[in-house]
Amino acid sequence: MKPKNYFPADENELVNVQAGLTRKVAAYNDNVMCAEVRFEAGTVAALHSHRHEQITYVISGKFEFKVGEETYVVSAGDSLYKQPDIVHGATCLEAGTLLDIFTPHREDFV
């Protein structure tokens, strides 16, 4: 089977994850996934962990992230790395958008 190389934005569904938080999966294959995550100010992504490595790039807005025992306040242009199984979560301080990269891809997102 030939891998898919192009993922038009209008073909990817915007999913309401919780009040104030939506997600749109972008390009992915078995090994890697890209997702756009939009937050309204005040929205909290509860502390959680998963088996995937994750990089978060802040496109816009301002967020307070808890990653393991550390807390970071991040804004546009900043990025975070989360190793597998580390507990992490975020509070949106100013409405914004994140780009999340996972390896391997998140089966629960597709």
Rank of each mutant, 00 (worst) to 15 (best):
N29T: 07
Y72M: 13
T97I: 01
A46C: 07
A19I: 11
S49W: 14
Y28T: 06
Q18G: 02
A41T: 07
L98V: 00
G96H: 01
Q18S: 05
T97H: 00
Y57W: 10
R38P: 00
V74W: 04
E13M: 00
V110M: 08
E107F: 07
F109G: 00
S79F: 14
A95P: 00
K66N: 10
H88K: 03
K66W: 11
E53R: 10
H52M: 08
S49K: 15
P3E: 14
Q18P: 03
M1G: 15
F7I: 04
V32S: 04
A9D: 05
G42H: 00
A35S: 12
V74K: 07
E64H: 02
D78V: 11
Y57Q: 10
G68W: 07
V25A: 07
I101Y: 09
T97Y: 00
V74L: 10
I101E: 05
S49D: 15
L47W: 10
V67L: 06
Y28M: 07
D85Q: 15
A9W: 02
V44T: 09
T91F: 00
T97E: 01
K66V: 15
Y81T: 12
V15N: 13
N12Y: 04
N29H: 03
Y6G: 04
K2S: 15
D10W: 02
N16L: 14
V17H: 03
G96Q: 02
A35M: 07
R106S: 02
K82W: 13
H50E: 11
F65W: 11
T43R: 02
G42R: 03
Q54I: 07
V67M: 09
I55S: 13
Y28I: 04
S79M: 15
G77W: 09
P3I: 08
V87H: 14
